[in-house]
Design a protein around this nucleic acid. Sequence first.
DNA 1: CTGAAAGCGCTTACAG
DNA 2: CTGAAAGCGCTTACAG
Lengths: 369, 369
Amino acid sequence: MKRGEKQNTQAATGDQSIRAPHGIRELAAELGISIGTISRAMNGRPNVNPATKARVLEAAERLGYRPQQSGLSLRTGTTRTIGLLWEIPFGRENYGDAFFLSLFIGVQAQLFERGYDLTILFDRPSSGGLAEPPLGRLKDAIQRRQVDAFIIPWTRVTDARLAYCAKQAVPFTALGRSRSGGNHPWIDLDFEGAIYKATRRLLGFGHRHIGLILVSSALMQNQFIIAGYKKALAEDSTALDDKLIVQCEAIPQGGIQATDKLLGLRARPSAFIVIDSAVIVGVYVRLAELGLRCGQDISVIGGVQDNPIPEFLSPPLTCFGLDTIALGKRLAEVALFALDKDETEAERPVVAELWPLKLIARGSDGSIQ
Amino acid sequence: MKRGEKQNTQAATGDQSIRAPHGIRELAAELGISIGTISRAMNGRPNVNPATKARVLEAAERLGYRPQQSGLSLRTGTTRTIGLLWEIPFGRENYGDAFFLSLFIGVQAQLFERGYDLTILFDRPSSGGLAEPPLGRLKDAIQRRQVDAFIIPWTRVTDARLAYCAKQAVPFTALGRSRSGGNHPWIDLDFEGAIYKATRRLLGFGHRHIGLILVSSALMQNQFIIAGYKKALAEDSTALDDKLIVQCEAIPQGGIQATDKLLGLRARPSAFIVIDSAVIVGVYVRLAELGLRCGQDISVIGGVQDNPIPEFLSPPLTCFGLDTIALGKRLAEVALFALDKDETEAERPVVAELWPLKLIARGSDGSIQ
DNA sequence: CTGAAAGCGCTTACAG
DNA sequence: CTGAAAGCGCTTACAG
């Protein structure tokens, strides 16, 4: 028998033999008080007799009563749920994305702290690949009022998701900057600074030709990555060779192709900087196949990795680290700013935070041979 | 301004300047028909004038109307959402669990196909570590009626989650067997067969001392793993040495400790079988630190891995593979069996499926030196 | 084929 | 401090 299946005009006679009270009505009957008082007691409203409140709380605990989400949401117009958009490029399904996984955990932990739930809204890239962010699940969730606010990662230079949220006046926080969405709260990782540091490091090792492997140029982060790369080259008075900047799909196979492309160049690079953590898998595999030893025959610096995988490789991968759990927690906190007005009524400035990335030197890069 | 914030007794006058209709009422007014007809048209009920239905559908599409989830859920007593429990052991937050990530994607894809949503219910282990599965989020979700059914992975020999669902008459599907939960639908991976094959393989290479690294013995899968291991040894007339079976925490650090423990044994093993994919990380790191080359100085077979990481290692890891996306899809399908009665009214037998695991031979194991 | 009405479970002004 | 009542947005028998 289906839960919640009741005839339209049927009295709540409890046609099942389930002991837990099915709603506030039964709890009220049990205690001989009105449902309004139950509600006030459970929500900590001030005007409730302490003794009554204690009785209600005890009974709710004993009988396992918690307000049903649908009734609560319908009445209050709020879901106490935050939606996190997550798109999975085709061919990346089996890649255990440590970054997003940690992010989920951080976001969820902080939301839980504040009595909110997290819903992950899975989407596939639209036909344009990474160029156009998928809009389906976002629209759906807004129209169906499934969540109170969104967290939107992997921002594009122009991003229809942010624009749509802004137009619909739905609160959202971006992980990454964008030209879209107006004056919205965002947190971003300092890719410019990170890639600047990586490039300087490799130049310092004597590398003159440094390959840069990017994923879709639609991603806003690419702007900053290229800026950091160019800045380092300019400061070192090293000429920029556009051919050394290549793009590939955000999957391991993309890394294989990008590696081949870079190694086929006349001005063959002696070092690679790889941003995406799925792409680095392909790069490592391909270099091993070709018998090129990382850290000796070729230097590799591999993107943002807050997980044990880099150490697990041989040689361990030099990469960028950050505390992804902390990032997730902060993201959740910022997402809630738009919802919980009770904190302080003072106008809060729109959050715009750049998180630094820390270079973690390991064995995959070094002096030119 | 908060969405859905309306005064209690206020008419729906649209105090915001949002163009999308906020509910069925506005759409009805727009079209000059009753809300009942809108609902029937949108839900494909038979008794609607085709012309009317077309007008409704067109207007809904044009104005971006979709029934609000809370109203729908409250009325029908169904959320069209499936909850997937996911527990993250402390210390495993940054480990990108490729298996679960793929599982999410598979489950979500199939649910989407059938008009259902997926909610991932994150939980932390209870104080007992993996011994006792966490019950908090499950209870909460049931009491608040957040989902229609559950998918419950990482089953324990006795599992309070399954027992609770059974007692509350909430549909659930287990990924893994258990003694709890009565005659429930389950899908399991054939760990017994897999470990049997792995052990036979290593015995065939001449290994006489094979270490087996497990995580918590509370996990049901351990029963089958040990059974497969013992069966292979018995068939080979190789004596069982209990000391070779060690347990560790389901984190990379656990793998380091287990490796040290096994290598410290008097009857030191020349081969390892490692089940958990987070543990294998630690094993590989520790062996590399000790200068032991996998596939030469020591053989390693590493659990279930449906991701590119094993190839990414040097040497590539011999392990077990399966199509995790397909598993997720099937799990979703089975979870829906209990809910969608419209398929066929014939009594369906309770699903009980054992999925085979395929040994993928790579370079991390081989003949004893 | 369509409309009017009931009611799912909750919270919150409003009386008392 | 408490109760009675309204109404959030929807679906579905029930009349017509």
